[in-house]
């Protein structure tokens, strides 16, 4: 297997993974846009290997680019897991904030009712 095929496979896998997670609502579309861009770049490099070859020849980084490729793979997996957990955390925190806001509203209402009752009680007590 050569590097081009590996990149194509990587790009396709990135597409499938992103699609799978967004479909399952585990990944926000906000992050999916960036990850699908990464997948597109990988696919393009796999389809047109002369792009990366040209870059390697012009920059003199023919061998280090392979190391860079591996490093990119590791960074990809790490960052994707961060995006997934951020999506989950965001959903939890929003629901918590919504619940908090509605509970505060209910508590305020109950406090108002309680003070009305206390006022009524004090008034009737004074009259008695």
């Amino acid at each position: 297997m050569n590097a081009e095929r590996l990149m194509m496979l990587g790009g396709m896998a990135a597409f499938c993974l992103t699609f799978y997670w967004v479909r399952g609502r585990q990944l926000r579309e906000k992050y999916a846009v960036a990850w699908m861009s990464v997948a597109t770049v990988l696919l393009l490099l796999g389809l047109f290997p002369q792009l990366i070859k040209g870059f390697a020849e012009n920059s003199g980084l023919a061998y280090p680019s392979a190391v860079l490729f591996l490093a990119l793979g590791a960074i990809y997996l790490f960052s994707m897991s961060v995006s997934l957990s951020l999506t989950r955390t965001r959903r939890t925190s929003v629901r918590l904030m919504q619940d908090l806001a509605l509970t505060r509203y209910e508590v305020e209402g109950l406090q108002q009712r309680l003070s009305r009752l206390e006022h009524q009680f004090n008034t009737s007590n004074t009259q008695a």
Partner: peptide, 16 residues
């Protein structure tokens, strides 16, 4: 009046 403790975005506000 319901106050969200932090800015959650239009979607979360409407869902509230």
């Amino acid at each position: 009046v319901v106050s969200l403790p932090a800015n959650c975005g239009i979607g979360a506000a409407v869902q509230t």
